[in-house]
Amino acid sequence: MSSSIRTLAPRAALVAATGAAAVVLAACGGDGADRAAGGAGNGDAGGHAPAGTPSPQGAHNPQDVAFAQGMIPHHRQALEMARLAADRASSGTVKDLAGRIEKAQDPEIRTMTGWLKSWGEKVPGGAGGGGMDHSASGRSGMPGMPGMMGGEDMAALEKLSGKAFDVRFLTLMVEHHEGAVEMAETEQSKGRYAPAKAMAGDIVTAQNAEIGEMNKLLGKSESKSAG
Rank of each mutant, 00 (worst) to 15 (best):
T111I: 03
R100V: 00
A136P: 15
G114C: 05
R76L: 09
A104I: 03
A104T: 11
P56K: 05
P73Y: 11
V94L: 06
H134C: 04
P62G: 01
M112D: 13
G114P: 14
A59P: 15
Q57H: 08
S90L: 03
R83I: 00
P107M: 06
P107K: 13
G130L: 06
P124Q: 08
V94A: 07
G58I: 03
A136G: 15
I101R: 14
T113I: 00
H74K: 10
D64L: 03
G58L: 05
G92L: 04
S90I: 00
P56I: 00
G92T: 07
P54D: 11
R76C: 02
S90H: 13
T93F: 00
A98S: 12
E121V: 00
M81Y: 06
D133T: 09
M71S: 07
I72S: 06
G70D: 11
T93R: 15
A89E: 11
W115S: 05
A82G: 11
W119A: 02
E80R: 09
T113S: 04
L97C: 00
S135A: 10
M81G: 14
P62D: 07
E121P: 09
S118F: 04
K103E: 13
Q69C: 05
A82I: 06
T111C: 00
A98Q: 13
D96R: 09
G120D: 11
G129K: 08
R76Y: 11
A78Y: 14
G128S: 07
R110Y: 04
Q69K: 13
G70M: 07
P124H: 09
D133P: 13
A59W: 11
K117S: 10
A59I: 00
A98V: 04
T53M: 09
A127D: 12
